[in-house]
Nucleic acid binder design. Sequence first.
DNA 1: CTAGGCACGACTTGCGGATA
DNA 2: TATCCGCAAGTCGTGCCTAG
Length: 226
Amino acid sequence: MQGNNCGHDPDKPRWFEPPKQHTRPKIISKAIAEIRRYYRAPVATIPSLNLANGSERQQRSERREACLAVLSCLLHYLDLVSLRVGIPQNDTSFQGISMPFIAEKSGLSLRRAERAAADLVRAGLITVHPLCQKLTDTAYKGYAAIRTISAKLFALLGMSARLRHERERATARQRKRNRKHEQKQAAKISLVADMIANQANIFDPTESAAMSAIRKLKSILSDSDP
DNA sequence: CTAGGCACGACTTGCGGATA
DNA sequence: TATCCGCAAGTCGTGCCTAG
């Protein structure tokens, strides 16, 4: 058995494998490839991560493998506009990803992924903001934490200018998507408004017909509410 | 200088528990 | 419910030391 019961082989580290059907901006795949240098040269590549264990001693290879798998996974699901990690939804909202999800995609156990993520936080490469909703005095509902990747990571890899450029492009893409979404919503409302106007003109505008149309309008609006 | 031995301690799994 | 923390027992990578 190699490593500490985790199948680790120092000579053959396992890297994060992004889902085949996912296409991501070039800067992300470049960053994922670049950070792999940390495995062979931790001090030279990301010194703060090497010091995350609070020791002068070099971080062990299993841990480096885990840290890189988690960091690669976070980079893969990075939103360039906000530098938040998550999956954009069809309704333009944004869904953070949970630790079990990260662990699964990174090919690590949950505990191993948690420890690797904690190292990344200590190294200042990511920030984590846990979210939860208080239901009663004793009950809470937990949500996937909001994680952000520090722009300093890209600076470390010599990709600051490239990141700025790609973020501008991503912002433009997002603006275009939002405009399209708003236009669709406006079209829905406009059609219902037309219908109300037609009803008012064609039939005798009784109060009940108008109320029924307004109810329909409300239900459409509530359906489109994210 | 290099290879090998050894001690240390970083890290693992697996569990339970606390917190918000 | 998601995340984080601590503990115990065990593994083995890392770095130091020494012999050749």
